[in-house]
């Protein structure tokens, strides 16, 4: 027991580990909430797209002397809008359009990055630098993540209805376009908030894993949200602490822990798990 306590409290003796843990938990929570909507809406690739597209925004913001958050947000949003525009004005399907837009913007970001003198490390943008966050970073993350979380929770029923049955949402007079683009804006904000902790590549996992795990475990949306947030925050804590002990990258450790949770849910979920299905012959459930 005391070994476990040491395993937990040991790393937390260092202020940088405390800050890392706080940021990881915040990011995990907000990503988990968004991931539930993305999984249900079939938008997992949208998180992938927006996060890659953020890169040129970061570089341009750096050159222009703006806060990186502003550039990242603007770029993420333009990716989403450009995708929508191309889809509506061509015969190409949405997933293909997304693939073109985000890889193009990611390429632009990489080219710009090598042309610009910057104090940023590419690796930190791609994979996060949670051990290097300052108190100021913690506050910034808390504001963006907290604000996003509040808006999503306030709109949670409308967003859910929009994902489930946009036709009905429209006929009862809900502003579906506002909900559609609102969800994209919230997604972009979430990615921006996650930059420091996990970077733009690993945030994709944070935006899919918890929702997928919870989808296997819950048959009601409220529970799905709760399960997603719980597993994500638990993964964040375990991953961050484990990274200290094994001297690994924290972002990667968090994502790996989340994947483990998904594997467990896949095997042992009481109703949807592989083992449960094997016990009950198909068709009688």
């Amino acid at each position: 027991m005391s070994m476990l306590a040491d395993w937990i409290t040991g790393p937390l003796a260092y202020p940088f580990m405390q800050r890392a843990l706080v940021v990881s938990l915040l990011v995990a929570a907000v990503c988990a909430v968004l991931s539930c909507y993305l999984v249900l809406k079939g938008w997992s690739l949208m998180g992938d797209a927006i996060s890659h597209a953020v890169l040129p925004g970061i570089v341009i913001a750096h050159v222009a002397g703006l806060p990186l958050v502003v550039g990242a947000f603007a770029a993420g949003l333009s990716c989403a809008l450009l995708t929508g525009y191309l889809k509506e004005n061509s015969r190409i399907k949405e997933d293909t359009v997304m693939g073109i837009v985000f890889s193009g913007m990611f390429g632009l970001g990489l080219v710009l990055f090598t042309k610009v003198e910057t104090d940023q490390h590419l690796n930190h943008i791609l994979f996060g630098d949670v051990l290097g966050v300052s108190v100021r970073d913690v506050i910034e993350t808390a504001i963006v993540a907290g604000g996003t979380l509040l808006v999503v929770l306030a709109l949670r029923r409308d967003l859910l209805l929009y994902c489930f049955d946009p036709g009905h949402a429209r006929t009862i007079g809900l502003p579906v376009r506002v909900l559609h683009y609102g969800l994209l804006v919230l997604l972009a904000l979430t990615i921006v908030a996650s930059l420091k902790a996990v970077g733009i590549i690993l945030v994709i996992a944070m935006l899919i894993g918890p929702g997928a795990t919870a989808y296997l475990l819950a048959d009601r949306f409220g529970r799905m949200l709760a399960v997603a947030v719980a597993t994500a925050m638990l993964s964040a804590a375990i991953g961050t602490l484990a990274s200290f002990h094994i001297d690994g990258a924290p972002g990667a450790c968090i994502v790996l822990t989340q994947s483990l949770f998904f594997g467990l849910a896949f095997l042992f979920a009481p109703r949807n798990g592989v083992l449960a299905r094997r016990r009950v012959p198909a068709g009688t459930a």
């Binding site: 489930f164 036709g167 819950a218 009601r220």
Partner: peptide, 20 residues
């Protein structure tokens, strides 16, 4: 046109009729 795997219960769907 309905995603039947969606995590909603029967009463949740009917309640959606009341949102307006």
């Amino acid at each position: 046109d309905v995603d039947w795997n969606f995590p909603v219960l029967v009463e949740d769907v009917v309640m959606m009729g009341r949102y307006g």
